[in-house]
Design a protein around this nucleic acid. Structure first.
Lengths: 333, 333
DNA sequence: CTGTTAGCGCATTCAA
DNA sequence: TTGAATGCGCTAACAG
């Protein structure tokens, strides 16, 4: 079927070892003429080394696993992915991406990693699909990994944290300081449909509590633009219309701006709107979108953690990065 | 390091063969007590079979490769990915995604597939990053694959085609029929910066030619929302403002609607706008977006082609699917 | 400069 | 009902 090194060797009249040395380019002296025969034979047969055999033998795959919630192209994932691909490329690694989607597939994805598909993993799974003990179990195998998560108790790997609770609270306090009193929260499903507040919702409730504001308006809709538009439309056409919306994603916030404008409401006059993430698209809305998020979208430091581990001789101590988020005040609030 | 079947066997006081039989669940009689010992030992050691060794031996990986241009979450890719993941799951396959991004990485991705990372591949790469002969070479290895492409001369695999040229021409003719005379095209980079028109740009030029309209206004900007907004703003504030914009993606078309509204222009009064793709978001713009694209976003037939090949005993003849696209007239044109 | 040999970890055939 | 032996395709140590 697929040609093997053995067949290349026969065609070139050499041993498989020579084929291996020529094609993997290790520094063993090979006569120019022999090398040419091998390369010709390989080309003629369309030979590509079997990676399963190679990594079984070398005990390395030269691959990185990227684990994401979905292939949905959340802005953060896109940046993370491009930085990872670029840095992996430069170091001779390839990247395979695993999408989790739900709890069952999260288990499957972890098993694929446990099965040794990659030499290291970069993991960004939001919500609770990826059970904590699965992750801990994976880390315990010694697989170099860095996890983007605010969960506590992750040992044996690097962790990248995001100050989303504090930043969200800051955003809501900014709205309160502007005199807003009926502030609605539009969140992701995984935050809203949960027993106790976490993440951006927790920031929202915390800020309200601090200011003795007990008016909580919590809706879902931040997961996609259409839902956000509809949710915002509902909120803004209700008799008790909110005077501010804090959306858990910029994409949702932008939909909310459009919903307000379509209803003839002025932003921020009638309703102030703040998002999360600081995506570029916030600069082309009218008014421009206020948001909390990173000022620069750069994940090279995060990816760097992973390659540090891969290139280290001995296990590295667990490190932690806390990313820096800022409230960016623009026209919408 | 990572435990092997051998270690499990020693701990359970059985042979590696027994471990293999118990854990892979093949139908060889194993005493209940032995089975329990093996399972306990495996759990205790946290054993997961090495997939490289397993697929080397079984000559199957139980994996599918999904090859995409980017992890950018183009709507089509999202649908394709969810359908693939779901169907793969149901059949006991996992999915690994490879992102191409550029020409060099396209070669790398093909090499990964040639190296046997998966038993089959679903490939959707737009533009010319993935050279035709690379794809042909991959198909020649006998790897079951289905390719979404309008290129000709792809042999040894299933091909899924999209009537984008005809549909784009239809969209432009619809604009012409509505009396529009200065129709601008906003395209993807890979179409616009190329020696001769292809794809959606070709549909545009073809329609204009047919009607003797020689006014061609070709711009890029369809690749992202921000660029589209800026391009549309430029177009619409120029002294020779177009009376219609045909955008190569719905996302760009939606940005164009915003740009028009922000300039105080009426859609479709001052400028008609048509997109491509028929995404749901076109229903929440004001006016709603006219578009050409599939009426239903369903890729199960495409994914089905791949699994047909994987499950077939002998090589299947190459098949072809032509997807059905329709002009959906809504308020923006 | 090149070939022979011995596994990597697993699934599977053949004996027992 | 179980174990020993073989080899998937490759790399790397050792021998020549």
């Amino acid at each position: 079927m697929r040609p093997t090194a053995r067949q290349v060797a026969e065609l070139a009249n050499v041993s498989v070892a020579t084929v291996s040395y020529v094609l993997s380019g290790r520094d063993r002296p090979v006569a120019a003429e022999t090398r040419k025969r091998v390369l010709d034979a390989a080309r003629q047969l369309g030979y590509t080394p079997n990676q399963a055999a190679r990594s079984l033998r070398k005990r390395r795959t030269q691959r990185i696993g990227l684990v994401l919630s979905t292939l949905g192209g959340v802005p953060t994932d896109q940046r993370l992915a491009t930085d990872l691909h670029e840095m992996a490329d430069a170091r001779g690694y390839s990247v395979v991406t695993l999408a989790v989607y739900n709890e069952a597939r999260a288990k499957a994805a972890i098993d694929v990693l446990r099965g040794g598909i990659a030499d290291g993993a970069l993991i960004n799974v939001v919500g609770d699909h990826l059970a904590h003990d699965l992750l801990a179990g994976l880390a315990a195998t010694g697989l170099p990994m860095v996890v983007l998560s605010n969960d506590s108790g992750l040992e044996g790997c690097d962790v990248v944290r995001t100050p989303e609770v504090e930043a969200s609270a800051e955003a809501v306090e900014h709205l309160l300081a502007g005199g807003r009193r009926r502030i609605a929260f539009m969140g992701h499903r995984h935050e809203v449909y949960r027993d106790r507040p976490t993440g951006r919702l927790l920031g929202y409730t915390t800020a309200l509590e601090r200011h003795g504001a007990d008016q909580r308006i919590v809706t879902a809709g931040a997961d996609d633009r259409v839902a956000a538009y509809q949710t915002a439309t509902d909120l803004l056409s209700s008799p008790e219309r909110p005077d501010a919306i804090f959306a858990a994603s910029d994409r949702a916030a932008i939909s909310a701006i459009w919903a307000a404008r379509d209803l003839g409401l002025s932003v921020p006059g009638d309703v102030a709107i703040v998002g999360v993430g600081n995506i570029d698209e916030g600069l082309i809305t009218k008014p421009q979108l206020s948001t909390v998020g990173p000022l620069r979208h750069d994940y090279t430091d995060v990816v760097g953690l992973l390659f540090d581990r891969l290139q280290a001789e001995e296990p590295l101590p667990a490190r932690e990065i806390v990313r820096s988020w800022t409230l960016v005040r623009r026209g919408s609030s």
